[in-house]
Every structure is written in C-alpha cells, then in structure tokens.
Simulated assay, not measured.
Amino acid sequence: MSVLAWLGLCAVTGALGFILARGRPCRGELAGEPTYLALHIAGLAAPSLRAGLNGNSARKAVRHLRTLLGTSALAITSAERVLARDGDGVPDDDQVLTEVRVVMMGGRPHVVAGEPSAVLVPLTVEGRMIGTLAVYDAEVSAVLVRTATEVGRWVSGQLELAELDTSRRRMLEAEMRALRAQISPHFVYNSLTTIASFVRTDPERARELLLDFADFTRYALRRVRDFTTLADELSCVDRYLLLERARFGDRLRFTVQVAPEVLRVPVPFLCLQPLVENAIKHGMPGEVRVVIKDAGPEAHILVEDDGIGMDPEHVRAILGEDATAGIGLSNVDLRMRHIYGHDYGLVVDSAPGEGTRIRLRVPKCHSAHDVL
C-alpha cells in the first residue's frame, strides 16, 4: 500500500471512530452505513483539495470536512490567512492566525483551551507546512485530537497529490517546449528551401506546399495541450509527409493504414510526427509505413521503415538523454512513460541493414484523458 493510500485509510478510519464514539447506529441500521458515510463525505471533499490549497478549494472542501468530523465549526488556513470557515464558533481571523503561527513554529497539532476549544493540525506538502486545519468544538477530547490529526494527514495527502499533478503539468509543458524547439530549426529551413525551389518552376505547387507548411506549423506551435486525438495527429503527419515528399521526390514512399475505430482515441500531443520523422531520417531512400490498429482497450501504433537501420548502441542513445541522437524520440518515450506508466514507452526494433520498427501502445481510456 502506498504512503498516500495509507494516510487516506488512517484518516477515514479515524473519522469513522469519532462518528461511532459519538453515537452507535440505531437498531436495524446497516452495519456498514457509518463506513459508507465517512468514505462518501471524504470523497466529496477530495476533488476540490486536488486543486491545491487556495481560497476556492478551501471553500468547497470546508463544509464536507466539518461534516466528516462532526464538530461545531472548522476553518482551513494557509500560513498567512484564513481561507475558509464553516459552522458557528470560529474566532476572528486575527485570533485564528495567532494560533496558526504557534502550529507553524512547532510543526505539530496544537490544542487551545477555552470557549470554544480548538485543535489546530498542520497541513504539509513534501515536508513543508503550508497551512492548518482548525477544528472547533465545545470541548476537545483525546478522540477529537486523534481524529483531527488523521483528517489533517489525509488532507495533506490530497494536497500532495495536487502538487504532483502540478509538477507533472509543468514537466509536460517543458518537454513540449523542448520538442518544439527541436522541430523548428530542423524542419522549417528544409521545408522553406523546398518550397522556394518550386516558386519559379511550379508556382501552383509552391502555393499548395506553403499552405501545407502553414497547417503543419499552426498545429505544432499551437497553445500547449496535453492531449489531442489520433485524427488530429494523423492530419499533422499527412502535412509533414507531403512536405517531405516534395523534398525527396520518388526516393520517399509511404503508406498509412488506420482503423477508423481509433481516430477519436486521445493521444499525447505531437507523439506521432517525431516517429515518422525518425523513420524518414533512417529510412531514406525507402518506404515508411504507419499502421494503427484497434486492439480492444488500446490503440497499437507501428511506424517502420526499410532503411539502413540502427545498431543497439544508437537505439539506446535515442531513448536516453542524448537529444541529438534522435529527433524527438526520447521526448515521446519519456512523456508516454510519465503519463501511462513504464510499460507504455517506445519499443524500438532495429539492426544495421534491417530497417527500424517503432511500436507504441496507447490506452483508449485513462484518467489523464480527462483534461482533453
């Protein structure tokens, strides 16, 4: 069991214990109903907490957390201000923040005696205290302290997941910027040179190629999005192949076979074109084939060429950190592994004189696709 899952279990168990301590279920009540209730309320609070600690997320979560604890009042604070409150009995902001500073300095739960009594629990992300959960009731029992502490740890776990989500998005955006920077100098110059060569001899073809180039760059350089559809990726590849065919002429042959059922499958943005670009680089002169099949819960993508092939050392280099060894392949490989797991990286089969085959699997349904 992961650490975050364990924290969630502890929190819900603690909350359940507090609920049961306050009152046994009535005769005839289902034995599992208190457990269901605690889990249900925690589930209502979780989505907003996964947005991180801010005023909006705190306002959405505070009522559910107070219901989970069953206390008269509850406040969620950052290190500097009260973000949200629910119920009667939360003191004014200055008084709350005075106690918050004690918690932030001590790094442990702090009990306040008086009217009302309170227990303030630190909220942490990666060992940093970023706020508190302030729980108010007529009296603070040992059970309430334990329960509030566990709920605070569960909230911290959700906030840590939010931090991981943010880090993941930043990483993907950085990798997309790196991929775009790699495409731009490599491809733009050759395309414009090819188009220029047709300006006098075949102006109409030059015009068509210029429009293809505009469509390709508009897609490749558009605002960063994590995902697109296979149909959009294939449209980008089609423009790219037309431009490369104009450059290489009959030396470049290509075929594209796609199962219609997979056209709407979400895929990471710019995951297909770098594979085709690599195939052209290592397969000229020769044929490049793109085959995309429906494989039940997944879409299976194959990009292969019958060119010169690569030795094992070069294959390891293009899937490693050497950005000059492969045109975007390491970028695609890393993004696939980060999004879907280590089993979903690129599989490259190649040997000198035997061409190259790159296989890619994409799940049709995945939680990451929700941002599409």
Rank of each mutant, 00 (worst) to 15 (best):
R24P: 14
P25E: 07
P25C: 04
C26K: 15
R27N: 03
G28I: 08
P34N: 15
L37M: 15
L44Y: 14
G55H: 07
N56K: 11
R59V: 00
K60A: 13
R63C: 02
L65F: 04
R66C: 02
R66S: 06
L74R: 13
A79F: 07
V82L: 05
L83Y: 03
D88T: 07
D92N: 14
V96E: 01
V102H: 14
G107V: 04
R108T: 09
V111D: 12
A113T: 15
A113D: 14
P116C: 02
P122R: 09
R128Y: 03
D137T: 01
A138Y: 06
A138N: 05
V143F: 10
T147W: 02
A148Q: 06
T149W: 01
G152Y: 02
Q158A: 01
E163I: 00
S167C: 08
S167I: 08
L172Y: 08
A178Y: 15
Q182A: 13
I183W: 12
L192D: 08
T194G: 08
D202I: 00
D202G: 01
A206P: 00
L210F: 14
L211R: 12
A214S: 14
L221S: 05
L221N: 05
T229N: 04
L230F: 12
L243V: 11
L243N: 09
R247Q: 03
V265H: 04
L270K: 01
Q273W: 04
P274N: 05
I280F: 04
G296Q: 06
M310L: 12
D311H: 14
P312C: 02
A317G: 05
A323F: 06
A325N: 01
S330C: 10
S330E: 10
V332P: 01
R335Q: 10
D343S: 12
V348T: 07
V348A: 06
E354W: 08
I358Y: 03
L360D: 04
V362P: 03
V371E: 12
L372D: 10
